[in-house]
Write a protein that binds this DNA or RNA. Structure first.
Length: 502
DNA sequence: ATGTCC
């Protein structure tokens, strides 16, 4: 179908010469973009592009593409060796380093691997916990107590070290090689939690010998810390159930208290990404890979440098899953302290944990592909063999957080998601760059936050995380659901949020 | 995102 686009574009040129406007073709940032059905637009390959690029947007979100360089970035990615069609931009797409945030790039075995196409925060991701607690009993006083206690247990903000650094230093090697199982053995959570984490909490192939001493030093002491920026711990209320059957399977009900944790691999992954962007940039020259911009620095998957990046990336992936596991343990402890109830009696249960910055080997259309997802979440449909056993029949929950003042969603991928390599968006997506967002006033910020409680003392530390700096999450969610790629299951709204500002 | 420029 996408191959037909060439004919279509040529046809359009002919029509244009005759002065006839053709609905469904636009020029954005110098790229000809052709409509390809509901909420899907295609940039047919041209020049050095090996494959088409596609973006999933509605008319409103499409307008935002005029404001950044994300189309240049997905078309650049489409020039890399081994890339499989199409390179994809999700509805929350915005400019990043190399590949845009909201980008999916699948590469065949003889192609290249790119650190910039995974991102600086390797295995940044989201974890959702459910409870049997009813939100109606959570007044402001209680919520303040809870976020205060959560902050007591979970260090937040840039450069913070973990409260458990004594233990984590000792198990660090085990953690990077074996993932969450290692932290569970050390007492953080229960064995069955592994059934509710993407990849069972462990991406195989990790090797600490591929990680610089500098990265190791930063990582050892940072397990169990939240970080800053868009990372958060949120006490949420299930606001609406959008699919009864799936919600029941996921243990979600209207009015329920849930907790969402959004964080990644901290300084550990950041250092690995920094190290390997440099290494892969040099390697690209050595192997003659034509890399269009430094952020897409890439080397053959098979090369020494490519293999080393995968080993180091997997180490950071395992670190981040484990980081969220320890934070979950500490959050539950905070609830136990404040509510004076046991975790069991509050019904705490991990719903799922998804990565949204990762490269993984997967099978698509009978081919083994290295799927780079950067600000994109895997969403396997019902019946897909890669689902964890508990969610085999339903498809696993894909978690999509909104901004700090707005709703978050639980969705499931459908069979139609095969066209995105079973990927969906990862959030609302930035609308304003951090610099532009600094211009938001305190009044505007507070109005946008409404009744949501938050921990931050200094407005200027958090202003760039304002809901106003993000796209409308409802709009973003509707793009893929209207196309039939996702089934929305539940909408959650924030009651109180812990952010990582000092 | 990030010991936000060794």
């Amino acid at each position: 179908m996408l191959d037909d686009m060439f004919l279509f574009v040529n046809f359009r040129k002919i029509r244009d010469r005759k002065g006839v406007n053709f609905h469904g073709v636009e020029v954005i940032q110098g790229y000809t973009v052709v409509k390809d059905g509901i909420n899907k637009w295609c940039i047919p390959k041209f020049g050095k592009m090996r494959v088409d690029a596609v973006i999933y947007v509605n008319d409103t979100l499409k307008e935002l593409l005029h404001e950044d360089q994300s189309l240049r970035q997905i078309t650049n990615a489409a020039t890399l060796p081994g890339v499989v069609k199409p390179v994809i931009g999700m509805p929350d797409i915005h400019e990043g380093f190399g590949l845009p945030i909201g980008g999916v790039m699948a590469i065949e075995e003889k192609g290249v691997i790119s650190a910039g196409a995974v991102g600086y925060d390797i295995n940044c991701g989201v974890r959702l916990l459910r409870t049997n607690l009813e939100a109606e009993y959570f007044n402001k006083e209680l919520l303040y107590k809870l976020i205060e206690r959560i902050e007591y247990y979970v260090p937040t903000g840039i450069g913070k070290k973990g409260r458990h650094k004594g233990i984590t230093r000792l198990i660090f090697d085990d953690v990077v090689h074996n993932g969450v199982e290692a932290v569970i053995k050390a007492g953080f959570g229960k064995k069955s939690d592994l059934n509710f984490i993407e990849e069972g909490g462990k991406l195989s192939g990790a090797d600490i010998s591929a990680v610089s001493k500098e990265a190791q030093g930063r990582g050892e002491e940072q397990l169990g810390t939240l970080g800053g920026g868009n990372h958060f711990i949120e006490i949420q209320q299930v606001d609406s159930i959008l699919d009864e059957k799936l919600a029941e399977r996921f243990g979600l009900f209207k009015g329920q208290i849930a907790v969402m944790i959004h964080t990644g691999s901290r300084g550990f992954g950041h250092q690995i990404a920094t190290d390997y962007t440099k290494i892969l940039w040099e390697a690209a020259k050595k192997y003659g890979v034509d890399v269009p911009e430094k952020g897409l620095a890439a080397a053959p998957i098979d090369s020494k440098e490519g293999k080393a990046y995968y080993k180091a990336m997997a180490a950071a992936v395992n670190f981040a899953f484990s980081n969220r596991q320890i934070i979950m343990f500490d959050v539950i402890k905070a609830f136990e302290d404040v509510l004076k109830k046991s975790s069991e009696s509050m019904g705490f249960q991990l719903v799922y944990d998804v990565a949204h910055n990762i490269a993984k080997w997967e099978e698509h259309g009978g081919k083994k592909l290295l799927v780079h997802r950067k600000g994109a979440t895997r969403a396997l449909p019902a019946g897909h063999p890669q689902n964890p056993s508990f969610y085999k029949e339903s498809g696993h929950p894909a978690l999509i957080p909104g901004s700090m003042g707005t709703g978050s969603y639980v969705v499931v991928g459908t069979e139609k998601a095969a066209e995105t390599f079973y990927s969906v968006n990862h959030g609302a997506g930035r609308r304003l760059s951090r610099n532009k967002a600094k211009k938001i006033t305190k009044e505007e910020f507070e109005k946008a936050m409404g009744d949501v409680i938050y921990n931050v003392r200094s407005f200027k530390d958090i202003v760039d995380e304002s809901p106003l700096a993000y796209k409308d999450v409802e709009e973003v969610i509707s793009v893929l659901s209207e196309r039939g790629i996702t089934t929305p299951v539940a909408r959650l709204i924030p009651l109180a949020v812990v952010k990582g500002a000092d």
